[in-house]
Structure formats: structure tokens, C-alpha cells
Design a protein around this nucleic acid. Structure first.
Length: 191
DNA sequence: CCGCGGATCTTCT
DNA sequence: GAAGATCCGCGGA
């Protein structure tokens, strides 16, 4: 079942924690590419200086200030795309960076899209890797993930432990405990 | 195994 | 101008 918009209409850290175990599903070129979210990070409004929305409402960040349940995709270091899911009600910035997926469906196609991945563990174990593996680009900036080709769905209901830690790769607001990942999962980007 | 730097686009100072 | 929510290949230990 596709997650409803109400799922995202909550504080970003709550959405981030609850996104663990859910599936990111992309239908492209008659194929279905799907991965289980094993790691993500919340980016907040207010005092969170690491959040892109901290710069205010700009053409790039406007989707973060918009209604929940949409994709915020951006291009970084001239090389990589990163996928975020917008949380919290319209007018209140907040989003969740999807940092790592465990490949579930369409492995052959993912391998084709990530020729540099030596092992399946390298297919989607990082924010730039997973967008390449699933074929997610700026075309999905602002896309509604409650319908269409890119969606987020319920996963296997098996239980797992959640580990909370500080976020990775940022230089400001580094001490906030806003990174969440599934315990003992091999596909997490940094262990 | 570890550390360094290149890639080369977008946004902001 | 410079830095950035990254990844990969190279060289050295």
C-alpha cells in the first residue's frame, strides 16, 4: 500500500524514524526498481543550520516549505542527486534525506545503472548511489510520492531495532540526533 | 586499510 | 568566488 499524505504530515524526525523499513518504488522503462529504506536523516526548520531550508524560501527550497508527501531532489558536487521526502504541513519546512536502500526488486537493472558497484552492497548504500541505482533525477523535483511513477510503500512488517545518531557529511548543527538506521543492516552507508 | 583529491553543477556570499 | 546533506580511484602503509 502506498503511504498516505497523512504519514508525512508530522514532525520530520518522526517521519524519518517511521520511514525505516518502507519501500521506495520507481517504475521506469517497463521495470520496477524497489529498495527498502535502511537509513535516513531528518532536516528541520527553525534552528537547524544544516537544512537547506535554513537559507529561506528560494526556488530550490520552496518544495520543502510546501505540502508533505513530495520529493525534494537536488544535485550536489556537480555529480550526484539526493532524494528527500518532504514532511510537516505546508508552510513549515522539514524533510527527510533517504541515505541508503537495501535493493529489493529490479537488481539486474540497478546493476546496469551502477556499473561501478562491485558488489550488490554498493548498489544503493549511500544517498548518491541510491538515486543512481533507481534512476531518480531532478525530473522528480516536487513530484507527489503518494501517486505516480515514484512512490513510497509499506514494506515487510518484520520487526527491527532502530539506531539513532548524529547526521553525516554536514558541518553545521552537527550534534543533533537526527540520523536513523536499522540496526545491523549491511546496506547502511556508514556503520 | 587509510587518506587525499578530482569531478564540475547549483546556490549563496 | 567558494562551499556543498558524495562517490570513486589512486597511492602509500
Amino acid at each position: 500500500m502506498v503511504l498516505p499524505r497523512s504519514f508525512y504530515n508530522r514532525p520530520a524526525e518522526q517521519v524519518a524514524s517511521d520511514l525505516l523499513g518502507k519501500l521506495v518504488v520507481h517504475r521506469i522503462a517497463n521495470k520496477t526498481l524497489a529498495g527498502r529504506i535502511v537509513e535516513c536523516e531528518a532536516y528541520l526548520g527553525g534552528d537547524d543550520q544544516a537544512a537547506h531550508s535554513y537559507a529561506g524560501l528560494t526556488p530550490r527550497t520552496k518544495v520543502i516549505f510546501g505540502p508533505p508527501g513530495h520529493a525534494y531532489v537536488y544535485f550536489i558536487y556537480g555529480v550526484h542527486h539526493c532524494l528527500n521526502l518532504v514532511a510537516q504541513p505546508a508552510g513549515t519546512p522539514g524533510c527527510v534525506l533517504v541515505r541508503a536502500l537495501e535493493p529489493i526488486e529490479g537488481l539486474d537493472e540497478m546493476r546496469r545503472r551502477r556499473p561501478k558497484a562491485k558488489r550488490d552492497l554498493d548498489l544503493a548504500s549511500g544517498p548518491g548511489k541510491l538515486t543512481q541505482a533507481l534512476g531518480i533525477t531532478l525530473d522528480y523535483y516536487g513530484a507527489d510520492v503518494t501517486k505516480g511513477r515514484l512512490t513510497v510503500r509499506d514494506g515487510n512488517p518484520e520487526a527491527f531495532d532502530i539506531v539513532t545518531s548524529t547526521r553525516i557529511g554536514i558541518t553545521r548543527s552537527v550534534d543533533l540526533p537526527l540520523r536513523f538506521h536499522i540496526a545491523d543492516n549491511e546496506h547502511v552507508s556508514v556503520r
